[in-house]
């Protein structure tokens, strides 16, 4: 346990620089985005109202009010989120392959640690989870700050004020990242982590058997997906609705846990018996 925690900390430390850069980009881009968009809006309003002398009400009718929903939909806001998402998808692979590449193959050290090799897998996964949650938290903290910034830059008559929940509920990707129900949150990230473990298993297949392993890894991903989606494939494929929704829900939870457990078990087997440096 102690070594596992140390490894988690170690993995986080190794990614820290890139992680901080990602957070920095997110903060800067989103804050700048709020200011730029607010200033543009206000400038446009001034132009239209004072130069073209359009009444305020008519301006609002034509151009709409400014609110966080405009900011949240802009590239300033989505861009860094997409960047972070891409970075972490890349990181799922990078977290393993960087230990193999180059002359200083750190994987020797990791595999020779006097601790269960499963700990290496779990610590890498945990590091990813913690950092993903960290990014989500940064977003949660940024939203009220951005709302404030918007308030300072856009006069009351021109803006719609929204609470953090309202902002999130109005935006489909934010809603996936931070759903309003905690159970949904657990389900969303549970599925995410299941996928991480499936990919880890595929990576370890590749690391164990190289070219053949890459193929096995892809096959494993397919099998895992089919198992997890089996009830849905059945329902859609046969246009049947044999299961009641609540049954599907329970079955999916069980299958999700099963697939995750299977992935971890297989990874452990590969790490202990098959992995090659």
């Amino acid at each position: 346990m102690k070594r596992y925690l140390k490894l988690v900390n170690f993995e986080i430390g190794r990614f820290m620089k890139i992680y901080l850069v990602l957070i920095g980009i997110t903060i800067l881009s989103q804050l700048i985005g709020v200011i730029v968009m607010a200033k543009n809006y206000v400038a446009n309003a001034n132009e239209v109202i004072f130069v073209d002398s359009l009444p305020l009400e008519q301006f609002i009718e034509q151009y709409g009010e400014m609110g966080m929903m405009d900011v949240v939909g802009s590239i300033w806001f989505i861009g860094p989120i997409a960047l972070c998402a891409a970075a972490f998808i890349f990181y799922i692979f990078f977290i393993w392959y960087r230990d193999w590449v180059g002359k200083n193959t750190f994987i020797y050290r990791l595999l020779m640690l006097p601790t269960s090799r499963l700990n290496i897998l779990l610590s890498k996964a945990t590091a990813i989870f913690i950092m993903v949650f960290g990014l989500v938290s940064v977003q949660l903290i940024l939203l009220p700050i951005e709302s404030m910034l918007l308030k300072w830059n856009v006069p009351f008559d021109f803006r719609i004020d929204m609470t953090v929940s309202e902002i999130i509920n109005n935006n489909s990707y934010l809603f996936i990242l931070i759903p309003d129900s905690f159970i949904q949150f657990i389900i969303n990230y549970g599925i995410g982590f299941m996928v991480v473990f499936i990919l880890f298993t595929a990576i370890l297949f590749e690391r164990s058997f190289r070219w053949k392993g890459a193929l096995l890894g892809i096959i494993y991903c397919a099998i895992a997906s089919i198992i997890f989606l089996a009830p849905l494939i059945y329902e859609i494929g046969f246009e049947a609705s044999f299961f009641y929704t609540e049954e599907i829900f329970v079955i999916e939870i069980i299958l999700g846990i099963l697939v995750t457990a299977m992935s971890i078990w297989l990874s452990k087997l590969l790490l202990n018996k098959k992995v090659t440096v």
Partner: peptide, 19 residues
């Protein structure tokens, strides 16, 4: 086994630490 890594060690031809 994992505990054996306290009893036997391996020094590869390249350093196995993060540069």
């Amino acid at each position: 086994s994992k505990d054996m890594y306290e009893k036997i060690t391996f020094i590869p031809d390249a350093i196995t630490m993060i540069p």
